[in-house]
Design a binder for these strands. Structure first.
Length: 728
DNA sequence: GCGACATTGTTTTTT
DNA sequence: ACAATGTCGC
């Protein structure tokens, strides 16, 4: 097995080699953007197998997305030139799921437990609220869901929670408890539960834990900066004191703090694991030095960094271009025009990315692109398996697998409408609660005791027969025929067929696409174990939200949020909406920690570009119905001037200041009527709020309002006519 | 059960 | 502004 050492280490630089060939023990690879982090992971695995003679069975590689997992597996097989059997490569959730399926008894789950996504989960929570008789206005279901998920992410069960006497916490504990028993009853497992339940199962089963600890003597983790508390505990439990973790990550690319990711796991890795070998990958193979220097300069403004400086031996490349548009339409037209030129001079549109802070910003671009006949693809938004019509069909399939899945029952009991209205459903629900039955069982009981009106009874009987029919069919038919059967007998196809418009047509297309997806679904003995084909497909639908389902392969401009762009690269990148309030987002400006995360997002955005980077912003932007006059993003001011080329340097300058506010050097008046005496960047003084800076303006005449960012009182909108402002 | 009207929220997203 | 959800009356 010693033979291919050179092949594995060839094509690697010094730092990469050091990481790949590290002696056994904890390793932390700090991998800057574009420094070949996936490559290091893949080569490390090859090294373990071919040089260290480690069995693939004892290797566990964890990623965050299915895409990353698939790519890693593919590249490993390519490098090893053979199928990577026995090797566990997958997402945290996928691997936890696999554990739970294999040990459903130890985990105290029903064998055919179903995974619910966020939408389903919210539905369950809403029903719990109803059962507890809580007003949605006083107890927003979403808030309860965040609470439950937050607790699960910290590994906390309702019974471990202190009743401090605080009525809100007390209520939340009640909700969490009721939600959990609702899930137990229906055999439902949410995303957080996958992780928490598998963690508990391992923790509480000494033999099981020992088995997996012995088996996985090598654990590799990608994007380590994105792990949350639960994922981290999961890793540590599995690693124990004997299986070293090989972690790869970049603290500068930690952009998921808002959903519970803790960079601290990366930052204190060497304290948590003794004798950690730390390797920094700082040579970038992606971008021009101009782009890299800009990224480095921006990220240098963050205080809490582990320190790292990207360099390249590539050429300078062109300056970063900065374009200030009048408004968002003009911004989009400029970008479109640039893309048109790029394509005309032989560039591929798919080499171009249009990035933005929030998805809503894509709309204007889409409109302009359509007008100019520029093909584009928007990433993010609803994915295939999340579409309403698909979820309906899946709910029928789930009922076929488990009649007691109340979430699915409620979803489709009257979809399409079949005469089982809210009153009847209420009755079923009450019956279920009273006798501690599932909705399905309760419906049957109502029929037996002839409690329903004749009309409702008929409709309910039909529905029960429908579900029984599907259950029978799911035992007999191959899965794609089952989907086809469901589409017909449930009436979903007919229902959407009746309405004849574009939307209903696309729903029908999607339902048919689901048949194809089922046909193409491959049952993997190794991964799915004893699961029925149906359950395996349903799990697949829940865990892989279906990115890329029914995708057309045209040469398209790639449009996405900067978050979605992490891990990707493009020769030409536009970062749009570079305005304070938009990016950094308003919600993140006040809190220093959140601002640093925005800055890391900016770093991620910049480092997506290989050759050319264009930043755009607007002077005036319509947002939530009103016009905003935003200042240029403070991040622009953090890029060294010599790297920037202003294409239309008419308006503000980007002088950097010590405070977070920027002044407009051009002194352009924001309104043309005489009543306005304030302009952006003016320092003002208010009787109550003290000193501040004008950051936005809206309306005119006596209705004119200005937004002032006060030094101590925060940001406020004031009516100029009443505010009694003085110049500071 | 459905259409008309009102209310609400509007950063980022994977699983 | 606008879309998505919830409420109400027939």
């Amino acid at each position: 097995m010693q033979a291919d050492v050179s092949e594995i280490l060839n094509e690697l630089n010094q730092a990469q080699r050091q990481a790949v060939s590290s002696p056994s023990g904890p390793v932390l690879v700090l991998a800057g953007a574009g420094s070949g982090k996936t490559r290091v992971l893949v080569h490390r695995i090859a090294w373990l197998i071919q040089v260290e003679g480690v069995s693939p069975y004892s290797i566990l590689a964890v990623t965050f997305t299915n895409k990353a997992a698939a790519e890693m597996r593919g590249r490993i097989e390519q490098l090893l030139d053979m199928p990577a059997t026995g090797l566990w490569v997958g997402t945290f959730h996928g691997l936890a799921h696999r554990l739970l399926r294999q040990h459903w008894q130890e985990a105290r789950l029903p064998q055919n437990f179903q995974i619910i996504d966020t939408q389903d989960q919210l539905g369950v929570i809403k029903r719990v609220h109803k059962a507890l008789d809580l007003e949605d206005s006083r107890w927003p279901p979403k808030q309860s869901m965040y609470f439950v998920n937050g607790k699960k992410d910290e590994g906390i069960r309702p019974q471990n929670m202190q009743d401090t006497g605080d009525p809100i916490t007390r209520q939340m504990i009640r909700i969490y408890t009721a939600y959990q028993s609702a899930c137990e009853r229906g055999g439902l497992v949410d995303f957080g539960e996958l992780l928490l339940r598998s963690l508990e199962t391992l923790r509480d089963n000494e033999t099981l834990l020992k088995h997996y600890r012995d088996r996985f003597s090598n654990i590799l983790v990608d994007e380590f900066q994105d792990t949350n508390t639960l994922q981290y505990s999961w890793l540590r439990l599995l690693a124990g004191n004997t299986s070293p973790i090989f972690a790869v990550g970049d603290d500068d690319q930690s952009i998921y703090g808002w959903r519970g990711a803790k960079v601290e796991h990366l930052q204190r890795f060497d304290k948590d694991f003794k004798n950690t070998q730390m390797v920094r990958l700082e040579q970038n193979y992606r971008s021009t030095s101009t782009i890299l220097n800009a990224a480095n300069a921006v990220i240098a403004n963050n205080a809490e960094r582990m320190g790292k400086n990207l360099w390249t031996d590539g050429n300078d490349g062109e300056q970063i271009q900065l374009y200030t548009a009048y408004n968002e339409q003009e911004e989009a037209r400029y970008v479109a025009e640039r893309i048109r030129q790029y394509a005309e001079s032989g560039g591929m549109r798919s080499d171009v990315a249009v990035l933005y802070r929030s998805n809503a910003q894509s709309r204007v671009f889409e409109e302009v692109f359509i007008g100019m006949r520029i093909p584009y693809k928007v990433y993010g938004g609803l994915r295939f398996f999340e579409r309403a019509e698909i979820k309906d069909a899946l709910a029928y399939m789930r009922l076929g697998s488990n009649q007691h899945d109340d979430a699915s029952f409620e979803r489709v009991v009257n979809r399409p409408t079949r005469g089982i209205g809210a009153r009847t459903v209420d009755q079923i629900r009450a019956e279920a609660r009273e006798h501690e039955l599932s909705m399905f069982a309760a419906a049957q009981r109502l029929l037996e005791h002839k409690i329903l009106t004749a009309r409702a009874a008929g409709a309910v009987r039909n529905f029960i027969e429908l579900v029984n029919d599907i259950a029978a069919a799911s035992a007999d038919l191959p899965i794609h025929e089952l989907v086809d059967h469901i589409n017909v007998v449930s009436g979903l196809l007919d229902f959407h067929g009746k309405e004849n418009n574009e939307k209903s047509q696309s729903r029908i297309d999607n339902l048919n696409e689901l048949v194809s997806a089922a046909r193409g679904f491959e049952y993997n003995e190794e991964e799915h174990g004893e699961m029925s084909l149906l359950d395996a497909f349903l799990a697949h639908a829940a865990l892989e939200s279906g990115e890329g389902q029914g995708e057309s392969w045209e040469d398209c401009v790639q449009m996405m949020s900067m978050h979605a762009a992490k891990g990707l690269e493009f020769p030409l990148v536009f970062i749009t909406g570079m305005e304070d309030g938009l990016f950094p987002h308003q919600m993140s400006i006040e809190e220093p920690g959140r601002l640093e995360e925005e800055r890391r997002l900016c770093y991620v955005g910049i480092t997506r570009a290989r050759e050319n980077l264009v930043l755009t912003l607007t002077e005036r932007r319509r947002l939530h119905g009103s016009d905003r006059y935003n200042m240029p993003s403070q991040f622009i001011g953090e890029i060294p001037k010599e790297l920037l080329h202003e294409i239309r340097p008419s308006v503000p300058s980007y002088k950097k200041q010590s405070s977070s506010s920027y002044t407009s050097s051009s002194g352009k008046n924001l309104v043309d009527d005489e009543s306005s005496e304030y302009k952006l960047g003016d320092r003002v003084f208010h009787q109550k709020f003290g000193e501040g800076t004008v950051t936005n303006y809206e309306g005119s005449g006596s209705h004119a309002r200005i937004e002032i960012n006060f030094k101590h009182a925060g940001s406020k909108w004031l009516v100029v006519a009443y505010a009694k402002l003085e110049r500071a």
